[in-house]
Design a binder for these strands. Structure first.
Lengths: 355, 355
DNA sequence: ACGCAGATTGCAATCGATTGCATTAAGTTT
DNA sequence: AAACTTAATGCAATCGATTGCAATCTGCGT
């Protein structure tokens, strides 16, 4: 190192350009072929040479340029995770459920040696997703939520893009989804609320989104089985945003002063609903029972602790990643998966209503 | 969509390997040079030829391979965003504050034409971060939180790695940070609680983390100015996890039955604290005032709405990205930035204590 | 001393796009 | 009609690492 009289300090710590294999080869007095093989642990290289080169690499913080490697080998170990948002509402990224999902995906990808490119994309320009693949920046795409773009997703699948979607399984679907059993989830909530003696329910959520629509379907089916209806003034279309949830809930209270239960299509909305109920002096759960969806971490620590339908986020991440990798290897689109879904009853929906 | 008689839907559009520039050149009857120039809009190319090639490219969904481009040009438009976690507690990714930060960074990066590589990394192996840069997978790194690794970060900065950290500004710091004014934040909370007539405070948070330590310093300084102390049994070291927060708060209540205020070093902990207080039949804010930190979106919708110190998350994302880009261009590490910090008083700390 | 096996190492082509320079074709000048 | 512009396009080197094949060297058998 501190050799006096160096003609040109090749790359001190790194004053100039990044060190590359040729530099290391020069330093070691061998060819780049040898360096390459030494670093990859090839048996062809003399163990002593190998060790010498590796030591040198470590000493100079040399790491193989993975752009070059990627070009040469043609393999790409990056997966794009796309969180679509709706321009109108800037909706989506605020939901804690997404957060959990992203964390779970990050873990699953890391475990399998992949990197995660995270991107928010305007839901109306989903086709830019295809460019991620076509340009080789990602090997595959995991899309969180299908939103209102079923047909576009089918088109992308038809083009053979390696794509897996977290969301609902729909009829005429050519792409692969992984999701919870939303219909069952909705039905479980209905049954639970009915069992608690509730009758005048309201529903919060945007049925334009397939997952929400399924939850709604299960919910109303469950209610119908118990002889309870859900007329239009007891529903409200609302994006997954706390403030929107609050507004919608206030309106629902005003339109249905006697309501005794709320089913919100996400925990975030449920929490906002609790706030709105409180503003209107309704006690949860004494006056009104509230049930959410997702079972985000905070649900258990909310005040009151929130009853909710659990989405198995950890399994979800694993299942999404595995499905995508299968697709990348096998070329055969794996079947869509339906994950277990169960109701977690906590305080917010427990006690009987005041008659 | 439901097209009957599809032979094999696997990959009709491009059966086989990905189309590349040479293919397109052949189709257009020109050389790759011409295609390259046509697609990049060079004036050298005949407008008609240019348009013809572009149309062809669109028709075949051809997108320039950005791995090859990246290799040739040597520029990398990917920034790594690192969320360190502590192996012991799996701590960190659960915090909604992080979620907001990631969203904000994603927006700021996208706006400037960069991609975001998101990675969770064991805080004890921060050096793997350097490999991201050395291997050319990312042009720079944004690290969320400095955790207990001030020295390692200094070492990385000394190596000249383009690195910006969200966190506290510390003495003897060679890397660039962007962060809120934590000392001021802590002091504001102290002053507010004192003004509400509270005297028996407790503090929740891990002072091993520089940001928390500064909040604590500001808090105790503020209390001292009001003649109030904070003996050891009124503090609790706790990671940013809801369940840990609950446990710690329960312990604090038992150790200080007469407490009348809580300062939690994050909103997540504050929410967990409210839950614990509720378990012990303490009213918030009547019996005990609670103040959090961060002002996550949910804070305003919590029950009761949570008083908290606002961290300007949007500015933070912008500032972090801008600082990093400056570093990448100018080669000169920009000065660390301190963002505005202010107290948001909501219901959880409002009314006077029962005397 | 010659030939050959085995162990190491180097040469050069390759991955896909870009770009300086050369080349060709068409048009203009004298 | 020769000389010369100008416009449009192609050739070939380049980015940094990998790898099939060839080259070199050592040692050994005879």
């Amino acid at each position: 190192m501190g050799n006096p009289g160096k003609p040109r300090p090749v790359a001190p710590a790194d004053s100039g350009r990044r060190m590359q294999m040729a530099d290391l080869a020069r330093l070691a007095g061998v060819s780049t072929s040898t360096v390459s093989r030494a670093l990859s642990g090839s048996e062809l290289i003399n163990p002593e040479t190998r060790e010498r080169i590796r030591t040198l690499a470590r000493k100079f913080n040399y790491t193989i340029n993975s752009v070059a490697t990627g070009l040469r080998s043609g393999v790409q170990r990056t997966i794009a995770v796309i969180v679509p948002f709706e321009k109108a509402s800037r909706q989506s990224f605020a939901d804690p459920f997404l957060h959990g999902m992203i964390g779970s995906l990050a873990d699953a990808l890391t475990e399998r040696g992949y990197e995660m490119l995270l991107s928010r994309i305007d839901a109306d320009q989903l086709d830019t997703v295809a460019a991620l693949i076509d340009s080789g920046r990602a090997a595959g795409v995991i899309l969180i939520g299908q939103w209102r773009h079923h047909d576009q997703l089918n088109a992308m699948a038809a083009r053979g893009l390696p794509l897996v979607v977290w969301g609902a399984h729909l009829p005429h679907q050519d792409y692969c989804t992984v999701g919870g059993d939303n219909v069952r989830g909705g039905r479980l909530v209905a049954e639970h609320l009915l069992a608690q003696g509730r009758r005048r329910m309201v529903f919060l959520g945007d049925c334009g989104l397939p997952e929400v629509a399924q939850r709604y379907r299960g919910f109303t089916a469950g209610l119908r089985a118990g002889g309870v209806g859900l007329p239009a003034q007891q529903r409200r279309t609302v994006p997954f945003l706390a403030e929107s949830g609050r507004q919608a809930m206030l309106a629902l209270i005003d339109a249905n002063p006697a309501l005794d239960a709320v089913f919100a299509s996400s925990d975030l909305l449920a929490m906002a609903a609790v706030g709105a109920l409180r503003e209107r002096q309704r006690q949860v759960p004494a006056d009104v029972a509230v049930v959410g969806y997702d079972d985000v971490e905070l649900a258990a620590h909310f005040n009151p602790p929130l009853s909710t339908v659990r989405q198995p986020i950890h399994e979800a991440g694993t299942a999404l990643v595995d499905a995508l990798l299968l697709m990348l290897n096998g070329k055969t689109a794996p079947a869509s998966a339906l994950l277990e879904t169960r109701l977690v009853v906590r305080e917010s929906s427990q006690s009987a209503p005041a008659p």
